[in-house]
Design a protein around this nucleic acid. Structure first.
Lengths: 338, 338
DNA sequence: TTGTAGGCGTTATCAA
DNA sequence: TTGATAACGCCTACAA
């Protein structure tokens, strides 16, 4: 790869001049400017970003960390397409790196992005704790934003959503339509979101005096296949079930398939609710009710904040949009007629 | 951010020694090693990758370019999760950057990755032509791999799949089951894959003496929503239709939904086939037949080649796995009974 | 076993 | 309007 030095020699000027031409800063005569461009062309020169970023300590790009266990579903596509769209308008590059399967690896991914001198990093955490993230944010000058978690200290650095509340609402919705035997399929049990959704379900049952029957709770792993297994284990116990609340749409789809295969008619006999309201899922079946998770809104909000922090004009209010996001979290009417 | 220099001072040694401790290369006494580690700890030191990569001219990371118009679907998730999984085992970071909406932007994305000194780059192209890619590959020493296109010159740098052939097979499959009025929903018409699939459909019709009826061809855009519109326009012309071949699963799902809404019973009356065989789609409905597109296999193969090129042991055979991929491209039996 | 010094490709500060 | 030259933070002979 040719360097700036070579271009300089070819154009008969110094490195400094080439640099000025490239950056557009400082005075350069039209004549030499032209010569430099010609030399650049001839040499097939391309600037080395490593060197540039090392010298300037910035990079015009924004990093995103997501665990690859999330890569499988449409939920993830939603996150990414939203982020890409927003950033594109802003003229910055989005760099995605893999958070893998542990807090350590998630931290390394963040560090990697930081060491690459990304202007900012967004993290959709899976393993890091609130405290760890609060502390990471403190340790770095680079803006770090967290999606889908409520931080303790740095609330303007996060955007989240009330999963427990939504789950409570969904359960309540079923109860009010006369359901008493409501099964629940959890997400991967080490996921905070999964835990919150389970908690909301339990709280609603208790509040309505129904009580939690552990036999009606099956563990899933967010995937369609795990939804299938969940239904299998649920039915193995010969439980009476009139509705299923699945912790996401993908599992709901799996559950539905299994019931279909077993010849259980849907809708009517069993009502199914999933979360996330992913685009394709909306086309799946009118028998599936879904609750919208405001990912797109969250990502969009996070990037807005980031941009205003980086390009100036940031109002350091805390928690500006949080309540807004919560409000948007609503139950969509399903087909079940109690 | 503290630098190596500071760590050196704190430990009472030189930068070089710190560097040796970090890299594990060269001799360092246990005693000083310990001191250095302590100093690193105290300083909260983290190496600056920009500087390191600039000095060594490598980065332990592999870039992937994908157009963000692909970000919406499960097909994309499949690509990414496969890539992440493979690379993880190899201990390298995967960096995804956005190819956006034009050949120029796709080229810029590649350049960006190259300037970042990625060890290699993988491109799932959407706008670049074969010749452009062949020429890009020639211009750079860094290994560049192309997924889903057959290059003219550098065939060991690409992995592809016979979309035309698969589409031909799918159409043939329908014809052999007695269908004569087969509608076709295209992908976005500027996509090579879409064009190939359309060509396969036409060729099959012609070969079986059925002839192409342009009124039975509707333009889609790969999305479920465009599948819905396609069916609308298809039915608007009061065409007789007994089967629909959609250029991907997402559109097939949309088409199915629309037919459902209209009360057309499926399966039986109309047989639908989509492409790609995305995981969730498999759960959608037994009424949907799908043809497997070997994305995972392609990605996996590309990364295998890359790794052996980078870590040594690369056999420079041309086209080693191509035919294998073609063979895997098979029609899955659907529900339609003649 | 450790330190010195030069280099990686830019940017940025001064003089000229 | 231009050219030296010193950073940027790290690696790596070559010496010691």
């Amino acid at each position: 790869m040719s360097t700036m030095q070579e271009v300089a020699k070819k154009a008969g000027v110094s490195k400094a001049t080439v640099s000025r031409v490239l950056s557009g800063k400082g005075y350069v005569s039209e004549a030499t400017k032209e010569q430099v461009f010609k030399a650049i062309e001839e040499a097939g020169y391309r600037p080395n970003l490593l060197a540039r970023n090392l010298a300037t300590n910035k990079s015009e790009c924004i990093g995103l960390v997501v665990t690859n266990t999330l890569y499988h579903g449409s939920y993830f596509s939603e996150i990414l397409s939203q982020a890409a769209k927003k950033l594109e308008d802003n003229g910055r590059q989005l760099i995605l790196v893999d958070g893998k399967h542990s807090a350590r690896e998630e931290r390394e991914a963040i560090q990697f992005l930081l060491d690459l001198r990304c202007d900012a990093v967004i993290i959709y955490p899976r393993f890091l704790t609130i405290d760890e993230m609060d502390s990471i944010i403190e340790q770095h000058k680079t803006p770090i934003m967290v999606v889908n978690r409520k931080l303790r200290k740095h609330q303007s650095h996060c955007v989240f959503c009330d999963h427990k509340g939504s789950s409570f609402q969904a359960t309540k919705y079923l109860i009010e339509r006369g359901h008493r035997d409501i099964a629940f399929i959890t997400g991967a049990i080490d996921s905070p979101t999964a835990i919150e959704r389970l908690a909301g379900y339990k709280e609603a049952l208790n509040q309505y005096g129904i009580g939690v029957n552990e036999a009606l709770i099956a563990q899933g792993k967010w995937t369609p296949a795990s939804g299938v297994s969940a239904v299998e284990s649920l039915l193995a116990n010969k439980n009476k079930i009139s509705a299923i609340l699945a912790s996401n749409d993908e599992m709901a789809v799996g559950a539905m398939k299994k019931l279909n295969d077993l010849g259980v008619s849907i809708p009517g006999e069993i009502s199914i609710i999933g979360f996330d309201n992913i685009p394709t899922a909306a086309y799946l079946s009118p028998a599936l009710t879904s609750i919208k998770d405001p990912v797109s809104d969250m990502i969009s909000e996070v990037i807005n904040r980031l941009i205003s922090m980086l390009d100036g004009g940031y109002l350091s209010k805390e928690n500006v949009f949080t309540s807004d996001l919560l409000a948007r979290n609503s139950v969509i009417d399903g087909p079940y007629k109690g």
